[in-house]
Computed example of a mutant assay.
Amino acid sequence: MCEERRFTEAVDACQQSLAIFRELGDRHREGLALIELAVALQGTRRFGEAIEVLRECVAILGELEDTESQADALLNLGSALTRAKRYEEAIAVSRRGLVIQTERGDRHREGTALYNLSLLYRVTRQYGEAMSACQRSAAIFREIGDRRSESKVLVNQAVVLMKTRRFMEAVNVRRQAALISRELGDGDASSRAANRILEMEERMKDRYGTPLL
């Protein structure tokens, strides 16, 4: 209840700021305020309203040719559509955001956009597209040295492989993610689970003299 009340208060504050920027005729700050309003609306689970706000925001920022902020708005719009279970619309929006990030040359955000797409493709059972997005995303994060993000993508890639019954490949990819997590010293639940895979393989190697793969 406390968190919901906080988001409700944020909605009110954002709406007041938005009214001021509109009165001043400041279109750019109006567009940015719409992003903040949409985030607050999502916090109160008003996804339909957030989606409409973000569509307006994307249009304004597009007119102003602020591609960086427009891409952020598209990212938030994709998130709102996903939370509303409007997956095909979320995929279309995420593809549009990916194009912008690629054109801007922002490699990290391009990798993030591909990762988000891979999740959407997976939930809609478009496993071929999901695999391609995972591979491209992991390659980008590897190239720019973001090992933690690469590990996260590899975990999703392993899930896609499991869904397509490519079990041994899934174990191999999961092992790669586990090795990265171990190198980074991560201690979250996902990393601990990954480390258990490595420990199991080490026990198998000690017992039988050969790894799983």
Rank of each mutant, 00 (worst) to 15 (best):
E110R: 07
E150A: 01
D188L: 02
E89L: 00
E103N: 11
D146Q: 08
E129D: 15
M162D: 00
A170M: 09
L114R: 09
S190C: 01
Q16L: 09
F7C: 07
R6Y: 06
D106W: 02
G62N: 04
F167S: 05
R174S: 14
A50Q: 13
L75K: 09
I100E: 07
Q157D: 00
L77S: 03
A19Q: 10
R136E: 15
L198S: 05
P211R: 13
R107T: 12
R27M: 10
V155W: 05
A130N: 05
M1I: 07
L81N: 05
A92P: 02
R27W: 14
L24H: 03
L117R: 15
G128N: 12
A139K: 08
D66R: 07
L18C: 10
N76D: 07
A138E: 00
A73D: 14
G185N: 08
A19L: 04
D72M: 09
E129R: 02
E56H: 10
S118E: 07
F21H: 15
A158V: 01
G105I: 08
L154R: 05
E52L: 14
E89S: 00
R148I: 01
T44W: 00
E52W: 08
G97L: 04
A170L: 06
I91H: 03
K205E: 12
Q42V: 04
V58L: 09
R166T: 12
R125M: 03
G111L: 07
R96N: 03
M168D: 04
L117P: 10
C2W: 02
N172F: 14
C14G: 05
A92V: 02
P211I: 14
R165A: 13
Q16M: 04
V155E: 07
S94L: 03
R174W: 05
V99P: 00
E4I: 15
E202D: 06
Q15H: 01
R96P: 03
D106P: 07
S181N: 10
Q15L: 06
N76T: 02
I60T: 15
E183C: 06
I180K: 14
A40K: 11
E63H: 11
V11R: 15
G97E: 08
L74D: 12
E65H: 13
V173E: 09
T124R: 00
E103I: 13
I91G: 05
L54P: 01
L114Y: 05
S137P: 07
A158P: 00
R125N: 11
K85W: 03
S149N: 13
Q101Y: 13
R86F: 05
I100K: 11
R107Y: 01
E23Q: 14
R125T: 04
A13D: 04
G128V: 02
I100C: 01
Y121S: 00
T8F: 13
L213C: 10
T102N: 06
L61F: 12
G111Q: 11
V159Y: 00
T164Q: 01
I60H: 14
I60V: 15
A71N: 14
L179D: 02
